[in-house]
Simulated assay, not measured.
Amino acid sequence: MSAAGGGSAGSIRIDRLLVYLRFARTRSAALALIDTHALRRNRKHVLRASEQVRIGDVLTIALGSGVRVVELLALPPRRGSPAEAASHYREVDSDGLDRKGQMTIGASSPAPGILSGDPEDFS
């Protein structure tokens, strides 16, 4: 069992990961992201909250009026401070994206409890 409490070694549920990395305040808010198709893992829409993510996966998240693309560097064991959460992923800039096969993802207004990506949401 992984340190993050996942069922298989080296993976964690995506809804739990979103909370641990502070992209959603609760697992219900993470589920809202999934239900509104505002989340992709490795270019594919996430359809279930129980989907497993691993180190190296790339998440595309539509938050507020923007889109964040992050690569998972480590599995967080728990929800920590914003600085601790940010140490588990790296932002992928638009210059570093492989445009071949990329489909656009539209940003929608976040459901209650979902962070907008603004710095004041992380305090």
Rank of each mutant, 00 (worst) to 15 (best):
S2M: 03
A3L: 14
G5P: 11
G6P: 05
G6K: 06
G7K: 12
G7S: 14
A9M: 12
G10Y: 06
G10D: 10
I12P: 03
R13F: 06
D15V: 01
R16I: 06
L18Q: 06
L18T: 08
V19R: 06
S28P: 04
S28F: 06
A29T: 12
A29C: 15
A30H: 12
L31W: 07
A32G: 13
I34Y: 05
T36R: 12
T36W: 10
A38L: 03
A38T: 01
L39G: 09
N42K: 03
R43K: 14
K44Q: 07
H45T: 03
H45W: 09
H45S: 01
R48C: 05
A49M: 00
S50K: 08
S50Y: 05
E51A: 14
E51H: 11
Q52D: 05
Q52C: 04
R54T: 15
T60G: 06
G64W: 06
G64I: 00
R68T: 13
R68D: 07
E71Q: 14
P77W: 03
R78T: 02
S81Q: 08
P82Y: 02
A83Y: 10
A83G: 13
A86V: 00
S87D: 11
H88K: 05
Y89N: 00
R90N: 09
E91P: 00
S94A: 15
S94D: 14
G96I: 00
K100R: 15
K100D: 14
G101F: 08
Q102R: 15
Q102C: 08
M103F: 09
M103G: 09
T104Y: 05
G106A: 14
G106T: 13
P110R: 07
I114K: 01
I114V: 15
I114S: 07
S116R: 10
S116E: 01
E120Q: 14
D121W: 02
S123Y: 10
